[in-house]
Amino acid sequence: MIVKELMTLNPVTTAPGETLTRAQIKLKAGGFRRLPVIHEGKLIGILSEYDLRPYLESLDTTVVLEAMTPDPITVSPDATLEHAVALLKGKEVGALPVVCYGKLIGIITASNLWFPEPRPVPEWVRH
C-alpha cells in the first residue's frame, strides 16, 4: 500500500498569523492533534497540541508562527506505508503532511497507520 490510500485528504490548516486560540478552536472542533501551517499556498510548518503547551497562558496574544514547528518532515503520496512508518517512528512525530509538487494535499498520522503517538498528548486546559 501507499500513503495516498490511507491519508486524510485536504486537511484543515491554519495560517502563521492566526492566534493560537483560533488554532486551538480548529483542533478541538475537528478532533485533530495537529494542523499544517500554510502561507501563500505553501506548507511552512505544523502546529500540534504539544506546541501549544508553553503558551497556555497567552493563547489569545500568541500567533501560530511563534509556536509552530517550521519545515515539517513531509512525505509523497506515492511513498510506501513502510516508509511513512519509518519516518514517523524515526523522527518521533505523530503526523506527516503529504505534499505533491510543493502543494499540501493531505496528512497521514500515526492513528491512520494504527500505532500509538510518539509522545503523550497534552491535557486541554479549560478556559
Results as ranks from 00 to 15, higher is better:
84 A>N: 01
109 T>E: 09
72 P>L: 15
97 P>K: 06
81 L>M: 06
52 L>F: 00
33 R>N: 12
23 A>C: 12
119 R>G: 09
53 R>I: 13
31 G>D: 12
43 L>D: 00
123 E>L: 14
108 I>H: 02
84 A>Q: 00
121 V>S: 15
118 P>V: 06
20 L>A: 03
3 V>E: 03
51 D>G: 00
69 T>H: 13
124 W>C: 03
80 T>S: 15
62 T>N: 09
28 K>T: 04
109 T>Y: 09
1 M>I: 10
55 Y>W: 09
125 V>M: 08
123 E>I: 15
6 L>H: 02
99 V>I: 06
79 A>G: 10
123 E>R: 12
100 C>Y: 12
89 K>T: 06
84 A>E: 02
52 L>V: 02
92 E>P: 04
62 T>K: 05
37 V>F: 07
42 K>N: 12
82 E>K: 09
86 A>F: 05
103 K>A: 11
47 L>M: 13
123 E>T: 13
95 A>V: 00
8 T>P: 03
67 A>F: 05
9 L>Q: 13
6 L>G: 00
120 P>D: 15
20 L>E: 02
96 L>H: 04
115 F>E: 04
19 T>Q: 03
37 V>R: 04
15 A>V: 05
88 L>H: 03
58 S>V: 12
14 T>G: 13
2 I>E: 07
18 E>V: 11
115 F>V: 10
65 L>S: 14
39 H>L: 15
53 R>P: 05
32 F>Y: 15
47 L>E: 11
4 K>R: 13
44 I>W: 03
48 S>M: 00
3 V>G: 01
78 D>E: 14
99 V>M: 05
36 P>D: 14
75 V>S: 11
122 P>R: 13
125 V>T: 08
20 L>H: 02
18 E>W: 09
36 P>N: 03
62 T>S: 09
3 V>D: 05
77 P>F: 09
100 C>Q: 10
118 P>K: 05
13 T>F: 08
80 T>M: 10
109 T>K: 08
90 G>R: 01
60 D>P: 05
70 P>W: 11
24 Q>L: 14
103 K>C: 01
123 E>Q: 14
91 K>Y: 12
33 R>Y: 10
